[in-house]
Structures are given as C-alpha cells and as structure tokens.
Design a binder for these strands. Sequence first.
DNA 1: TATCGGACTTAGGAGTTGGTGG
DNA 2: CCACCAACTCCTAAGTCCGATA
Length: 916
Amino acid sequence: MATEAFVKPVVPNGHDGYEDEDEDDIPLVFKRTSNTASTTNRSRPIDNAMRNSVIGSTKSPPPMRSPLTSPNRSASSSARSSMMKPTTLPSSSSVQRSTVKSPLRDDRSVVAKERNGLGKAPSVSKSDDEDSEDDKPLSARLKMDSKEVTKQLSSSGRGSTQQAVQKSNTRPQGLSDNTKKKVLDGRATVSSTVQTKTSVGTSSTKPVHNEQKRPLVNNINRNGLKPKTEGVSSQAPAKRPLEKGSSSNQSSVKRPKLSEPARPVKVEQGSHNAATQDAKGKNLDASKPLRANQATVKEDNSDDDDHVPIASRMKLDSSNNKSSSSKPSSSKTIASSSRIIAKKPNKWVKDSKYSKSSKSLPSGDGQTKWKTLEHNGVIFPPPYKRHGVKILYQGKPVELTPEQEEVATMFAVMRETEYYNKPKFRENFWNDWRRLLGKNHMIKNLDDCDFTPIYEWYMQEKETKKLMTAEEKRILKEEKLKQEEKYMWAVLDGVRERIGNFRVEPPGLFRGRGEHPKMGKLKKRIRPCDITINIGKEAPVPECPIPGERWKEVKHDNTVTWLAFWNDPINPKEFKYVFLAASSSLKGQSDKEKYEKARKLHNYIGSIRAAYTKDFNNKDVTKRQIAVATYLIDKLALRAGNEKDDDEADTVGCCTLKVGNVECIPPNKLKFDFLGKDSIQYVNTVEVEPLVYKAIGQFQAGKSKTDDLFDELDTSKLNAHLKELMAGLTAKVFRTYNASITLDLMLSKETRDGDVPEKVVVYQQANKEVAIICNHQRTVSKSHGAQVEKLAVKIEELREQIKELNIDLDRAKKGRTPLMGSDGKRKRNLTPEALEKKIMQTQGKIEKMERDMQTKEDMKTVALGTSKINYMDPRITVAWCKRHDVPIEKVIYKELHQSHRFATLETFLCIAIADI
DNA sequence: TATCGGACTTAGGAGTTGGTGG
DNA sequence: CCACCAACTCCTAAGTCCGATA
C-alpha cells in the first residue's frame, strides 16, 4: 500500500467519482435541473420494508471482500488519499457502519458499506481494467495525488488538525480486536480503526451483503458502556407534543399509511461477507495505523480529546489508507493504473485552465453573488375570468360576486381530492370564504352549499381543452411562450440565464402536506405592490406589468441571488422568492460546493465517527445526546430536525424526535416511527451500537412519549458542534455524503461486464438504494394495481401457451399434427425443433415479465428523482458512465444532463481523458 | 441564549409529453 | 396507429441553516 499510496489508485471500477478531488477543480458548474420528481404517490410502504435493517449488526463481519474496498480501493484509495479514500472514510465510518448496519442501510446496506469508505472499487477486474482504462484515466485523473490530497486536506481546514490527529492516531496499535474486525470489514481502514473501538457501527450495507455485519457493534459491546440510566434530564420541554402519544402517533395521525414494519433487514449476509472479509483484511493492514490510533483513543480517553476539535484529530490518512489493498486481481491493474492516474489527476485537477471558474463563487453569505443583474421582473397570472355558474345553497342557486365566485371555484374543483372532505380544510376554507361573503350573506354554512354546478362546468372545460387538436394546442402554447419569453431570462454578469419561477404564484387554496393546520386557507392573489424586485443598479427597473400599479420596492442587493420576493400570504412572516433556474451558474456553483463539502467529509468521517462513538457514554448528557444524534444522522441519514411552530404540520427530524418516536427493542434494536419532512412516514427498525441503545433508553427515562428525546439538543447546538469537527459541516452534509458514497460504492461494486441495459439496471439499483436511505417516497400510482394485474394475466397466458406447445411438441415428435388452438384455429405444423425454440422464447418472455413485475412492485413507492437531483454527486454518475460506456442520457434525464452541471462535467471528463 | 428574519435547498404531487408495444 | 406508461417539467410546500437582534 504504501507504495501505492500516493498514486491514485485507480479504482477498479473506476469510479471514484467521489473520490477524486480533482473534480473539484473542475470547472464544472453544476446546474441542477429542476426537479424531477417522480410521481406521486404517497404511500410509503416501501420504505418500511426497505428500511428496516439493522444498523449495526453485531455480528462480526465476515470477511468480505469488498471488491471495492478492499484492495483496490485501498490502493486506490490511498491514492486518493485525499478524498475518499474509501479507506479512510470507510474505515471509520465503515467500521462503524459495518458494524452496525443501519437498518436503513440494510437495504441500504450498500450504502453503509460505501460509507464505510469503501471506495470504490472493488477490484477492478480485468474487465474493469478495460473499463478502467477509461476509468483509470478519469478516475485517476480525478483523483488527486496524495499530495494534492494533503493540500486539500490542509485547506479543508485541517490545519490544526494535525495535532489533533496525531493524538488520535496515537493509539494505533492498540486496536482491539474489535477494531481489527472492523477494519477488516473493510471499512475500517484507518478511521475505522479508530473507531473501532468504539465503533459505532455504521451500517454498511451492502445491498446484499450488508449483512455482513459489522463488527462494530461487537466492539461496542466490549467497550461496554455502562449505560447510565440516569436520567436524562427530563426536562424536555416537549417541543411539540406529538399528538398522539406515541411517536408513532404522529404517523398515525398524519399519515395513516404504513406502519408496516420495516422490512426486515435485509440482507444478508451472505454474499457479502466474503467481500467484507477481504476488505477487512486489507484494510486492516493499511488502516490500522492511523486510524487505529484514533479509534483507539476513543474510549480511553474518552474525554480527553473531547476538547480537541475532531478535525484536528483527524487527519487524513490519506497516505495511509491507501495501502492495504492488496489483493485481488485487481491489484495489478490497479497499481499500474493508479500510477498513471495519479499523475494525470494532478494535472487535471490543477489545471484549471478549463475550469470555468471564472465566476466568482457565491458561496458564503453576505458575499457578492453578482456584479450586474438584469431581468424583466415577474409575470402575473391573468385576472380572474368569471364563468357565472351558480352554486346551490340549500338547493337554490346563489348569486356571487366575482371575488366570491373565484374562491368558490377554487373549492369546487378540489372535489376529487383528499382535501375536500377534511374537516380542517373545510373549516379553514369556510372561514376565509365567509369573510368574502360578508356578514349578512345568505350562505350561512358550508355544508349546505352544493358546488356541483361549478365542478361540472370545470370538468367540461377540461374536456374541451382535451379535445382541442394538436395544432390548436400548439398555437396556444406558442402564444403563451411569446408572452412569457421576456420574463424567462435574466442576464447575470453578462450571461443570459434562465429564471426558475418567473410566474407569480396564482391565488388558490393552500394545500399543505400532512395534517397541516392551515390547509384550505385562501392564498390571496399577489399584486405588484406585494413584490420587492432585486436588480442591478445600472439595469432598468422592470416595468410593472399591471397598469396603474407599482412594485413594493426595488433593491439592488448583490449579496443575494433572488430576483424578486413577496411575503407568503399563508405565512406572512415567510417569503416566496424568485430565483434563477437550477441550470444557472449560480445554482450550479452552490451545488458543486455542496458536493465538495460532502467530499471533504469523507476525509473527516473516520475521526468524526470515532469521536461520537467515544461520547456515547460521556457523562455530560448534552455531549452524549450530541453523539447519539450525530450517529443517527450519520447512520440513518436523518434530517437535522429544526423546531417548528404550532401552525405547521407536526413533523420531526433528529433533534426533534419525541420519546414515542423511538422504541427500544432488546437487546439493541431501535424502531423509529415518525413523520418527517412533507409528513412522509419514516419507519425503520435497526440494530444499533449497544451504547447507543443504552443512551436512548436513558434519554427516554422518566419522560412521556411526547417529550423530546434529545431535550438538551437543538440543531444549532448540533451544528455548532459539527463545525468544530470540520469547517462548514452541518447535519445535512451527512445526507449528501452518505447518498453519494453509497452510489459510488454500489456502482463500483455491482457493475459487471455486460450490455448497457444491464448496467443501467445496476445504476437504478444504486439509485434506489440511495433513495431508500434518504427515505424518498412516492405514492403508489393509481394504475399500479391494474398494471401489475395485467402483467400477471399475460404471464398466465404465456404459461398456457407453453403447455400447449409442449403438447404439440410431443405430438410433433410422434409425427402428429398439432391440436387446434384455444381459439379454435388450426395451428401451423412446426418441427419439433421449431417448437422447442418457441417454448424457450416464451419461457424467456415469462421470465422477463416476472422480473418487470417484481421491479415494478419493488419500486412502487420509491422516488428516485429526488436523490438524483439533490444528493448524488453527478460526477460519480458521469465518471461511471464514461468508464462503462453507458450513455449518460440512459441514467440522467435530459434536462438534468443538459444543464451545465452535466455538460460541464462531461467536458471536464473529456478533457481529463485527453490529458492523459 | 433564544428568537427571529432571511435566504436557499430539498421535496412530493399534478400535469404534460413523448416513446413504444401491441 | 393508438393507447399506455414512464419520464419529465412545473409548482410550490417544507425543510436547513445562518446571522442579527432582543
């Protein structure tokens, strides 16, 4: 390893996207596309299933080899040393993770693994090599040398770290068995080592493998924390009472949906173990050194270092990490490749000639975001057009003013939605509409109103629209475009950029998600006098599109990126902003910064995990809560969980979890059940480090179900703590990091030789894993049941056909003619060979349909788009596509890849390759 | 230190579109 | 050629996080 250390290892698979730092340099501008979300559906069944997993399984990990990780990775990693080294990260993290499996991870297993740091590539195999060639170059290019790494590190703020690091390192040798095991897991490399002791286990999951387990847990046990039972202070003021008592309550309350148990953990160990082992083995070697130290540290000192910023403690191992690998087949390849790569990368990275960086990065707050900004303001929805259809009140038609009719229409058209019959929705609507009707209006209550006439008018309008010819539709579309064209673009620093939401939100009834207390309230029409425009000083102020009216205010603030804003009519304290589109350089830049931060976390994750593991039994309750919360955020990808007002839906994140949201299941499993963002239910049962389990029990002691689990904690305290560990680190970075590392790991691990469709499936599986980890759900489409049924029917028909064909085959062999078909027609007289061929083909069809059906079922509640757009570093995807000759458009949709972000990446990659 | 204001990112669902299998 | 469905786009709600202020 050592040798390799500097070289960037090529990742076998090559991926590395993540790892490469270079990319950083890359000019890319990421732009994001707009969203994509998938469909709707809210069910969340899936999740459950998927989610459950154990976080840390205790078992010792079997030796697996992670392809990636292991050797190659190590090597490579080392190479990357800098970043990602899988080793590094993984290590620590890995260790933990591995140990633990996060439930999530289970499925997520993969993820876990990744996180662990694997690097990427399992081994590159020969085949890989080939790919690797591409890969290599790229990856290699991307990656930095160790030196670079170092630089980065330092830049990242390690500075002081070193010292700290040292401390941590110090411990090295002493890894406990546990540690070793962890290490073995592969994840462990350096960091792992460190952690090892404490090891939290993280989950690593391999998709399949996950199971492997994670030594961590075990380790933990050894550590044997004693749980203190004491109490946590129970002060917990309940921040927001759950409504129901139990956590679950929430869920229940808000979303009835699933409560299923999570899926069982998945996986299984089986396969992976092997991998793991390998990895471990490898890792060990390499890793031990550094991280071990750290890890070791842990308990002992437990407190010692506390003060030391983790960051400082950490250092990278970059060099260290690299090492291990050995093994496998890939090694050769890797090595060689790595070298090559290494060189390139540097260049690459550094070269920033390509980088477009010309623009100033936005980044920090208060910083200048632009020098000149021109735009034409916003476009307003057309004024209300009266239809004159009357509603019935107690059976009689009622005359309404246009204003009253407009709001009545908003309500009428929602008849087929879930909102329509919700008491809160009706109540809020009625309160606002009644105000419009006036005190003396004949309509005295909503229940006596019959909106059917308006609903029918609306349906008819819809039908009419549908019946328009394609030509008519095209003309309408063009007209609309012509009207809006001038509002669609802004010129920022001389560059024409698309504006994201240049249309002012039209009036309507508020559709909050979950059990939102304000659902049904009237969202009034926004007028120019509600809008503040932000534009360059030199630019002409946009003309107010509504004659006789004027903007509320015109500002020239170049420290912000918004072009206009107005106060949210539903929550006047909040704002609605008009920003540039995701494809703009401004958004792309911040996107890139986001991924860079996640990458940087890769270098710190080992020490961070070691640090929080050490604090699982810290005597200071606040520290203990921070440690456990960080663990949950890291392992389960939970959101931070800011405090919320009472006039918002009752949802929680990590810091706002209620006692009732977490159930302790002996010996060391935790069942989470709560409503998260958008009132999406999160149900997951995971095995955690025994110390975590104990700590949770302590935090719950003496409290009611609606009290805060982490009563000493809030997001600002948590983030302040995280910032001590790594500059710029906040809770959400863990989500980005774990999502990207998971993608990377899964891709490198699962990609095999094969045709493009097969590779695309691998990508989708990886994407799915990430979505599960992040709990991105969608509701099951209305037609899902019918679609599945249809497939089932077809499969049955094909089976019948096979039966008939077999009969015909028997007859044909005996020289007889086929029987009449089920349709009564005479069949062609085929030779036995032809019949056999036909049977085979039909069998193949059945198999494909069964697979499709399974996939459809598996994916019915998983939303892939959100993670693709917001969490998975596009560089990983691009690098993988290049490496494996998969056209980028097969895995990324158009708009996404058209966006600068991807275009740039591709360019970047091409350049890198050429360089080589 | 807790709150609040402010600025941005992340999220799911509705609506639209275009590719494709029958 | 048509119907269907998956893939997108659009929309806007709902989070995160930071810095200022009380």
